[in-house]
Design a protein around this nucleic acid. Structure first.
Length: 275
DNA sequence: ATGCCTGTAACGTACAGA
């Protein structure tokens, strides 16, 4: 099974490129972020024609997450229980919960597509929101793992955190900026504290996953590594290889992020999955 | 060339992104 995560930066603007990549990349499951549309606006037909079923959570032009699969989708869950909201309180007296998390099970593998809040600036209200969001995710994931220790779990998406200094092209550009602050890194590493690991980094120590559209960032290779696949021990055991598809940043109309892919051991192996 | 930002809502310009 080949599973990928990709911040597509609008699925309506990118559907042809995404479908084309699903074929070329032989992708079975794709977790998308920033689809930037509501359910009624999603290009379901193109995915269906390509053989993929899609589940999504999209409320408006902001954020939005989806999972496409050609191996079925079960137990779909929108938002995680502790996911905090953001913004002016609504009729229920609570800030609205944004479209940033969707989970589903594919052939016994539990997958989440996550779009972690950006944080904006260190003194912006979006920054503590980001930290609370990650803390809630860690809390809920710890509870889930305690109940389902044998089900392979992958939390995949745009984490909007550069865990190491080498994950940005120049730390001098990030003085007093989000994405590299210690509280953000601590919140990210808390996922490792509950047993998850970045299943791509050991296989691919080098490589960015995002380059800003501005200032020739891609031609200069001034990027960031912020898209990760965090796997439980049972998931990590299945990972055979990984790819960061840098070529998807080239050509006409690319997303500013590229796909991150892992190949899991399949039925052709001499041992059955999940043993 | 991988090239000086892009997408959405709404039709001029604001907001968001990292």
């Amino acid at each position: 099974m080949r599973i990928a995560t990709w911040n597509v930066n609008s699925i309506r603007a990118r559907v042809d490129r995404v479908i084309d990549y699903l074929h070329r990349g032989d992708i079975d499951v794709l977790a998308m972020q920033e689809i930037k549309c509501r359910d009624s606006q999603f290009p379901y037909a193109a995915f269906e024609a390509a053989g993929y079923e899609v589940v999504l959570h999209g409320l408006n032009q902001w954020n939005g997450v989806a999972i496409a699969s050609r191996l079925g989708l079960e137990d779909v869950e929108v938002t995680f229980p502790s996911q905090p909201g953001f913004g002016p309180v609504g009729d229920d007296g609570q800030p609205p919960v944004e479209a940033r998390a969707i989970g589903a099970t594919i052939e016994g593998v539990r997958v989440w597509s996550l779009y972690v809040p950006n944080g904006r600036e260190l003194d912006n209200a979006h920054y503590p929101y980001k930290l609370e969001w990650l803390a809630g995710l860690a809390r809920d994931t710890q509870s889930w793992l305690a109940e389902h220790p044998d089900i392979p779990l992958a939390l995949m998406g745009d984490w909007n955190v550069a865990p190491f200094d080498t994950d940005v092209w120049d730390m001098a550009e990030f003085v007093n900026s989000t994405h590299v602050s210690q509280p953000e890194r601590d919140a990210f590493f808390a996922l490792e504290g509950i047993g998850l690991t970045d299943v791509v980094r050991p296989l691919l120590p080098e490589g960015y996953t995002y380059w800003d559209y501005k200032q020739l960032r891609f031609p200069r290779n001034e990027g960031m590594r912020i898209d990760f696949i965090m796997g439980s021990p049972a998931f990590a055991d299945l990972v055979e290889s990984a790819e960061i598809v840098r070529d998807e940043r080239k050509g006409d109309g690319p997303s500013d992020h590229v796909p991150v892919v892992v190949t899991l051991t399949g039925e052709d192996e001499d041992r059955p999955m999940f043993l």
